[in-house]
Amino acid sequence: MKKYSIVIALIVGCVVLILVRYQDSSEETWNSWPNLPAPIGKEPILITSAGQAIEGKVFSYIAEELNLDGDYRPRALATDLYEYKTMIVVVGYSPHGVRQTYRSYKEEKERVESLYEEAEARDTPIIVVQLSGASREDAYTWELYKTSIPHADYVIGLQELEYNEALLEQAQQYSVPVTLVEDIEDIKTPFNLAFR
């Protein structure tokens, strides 16, 4: 029995970690707006990424399915914004994605901040999208949310995000309407209603 003591301890540790994580992710259902009461966005739209995760690409196809006129430019700069009337920022930090841009995380964050400043200066509506759900619960992604929400006009995301309470609190602090849905597919409705 003694020789299995570490094996038992490891199994217990593994189960505890899984349960803690499961409780964090699924305990509560957050109350949020079902959709915006009136559209805020206009076409053409710029879809960009904050953190270079694959979610940006996925969201660009959702926008395409909704026949929204715009471009997916994950590495867009503030100078690119003049062509567009709405900016969609899909948040999610991918270390491999950022490495593809030959930038550091810090430079990526600065790029996103300068985009927000430029959008605000141009009075371009900003919609922040969270597609990662429970998958990206890391501090880097959360840092990007914290940077994005004060500039956002509307936030759409998935229910299962552990940081949702903090995200909702911050959104409330900046009077940003938030819509949280169960699946990626469900995002289409509130997103469509933000334009039409």
């Binding site: 994580r21 699924s26 996925v58 491999h96 998958s135 990206r136 990626i184």
Partner: peptide, 24 residues
């Protein structure tokens, strides 16, 4: 298993997300 904290590395998340979009 994502809600249990399993498969939360960048590539696993990306592949799962792409699969969710492509095949639900």
């Amino acid at each position: 298993l994502t809600v249990f904290g399993i498969g939360t590395d960048d590539f696993a998340v990306s592949i799962k997300l792409a699969d969710e979009y492509l095949t639900d």
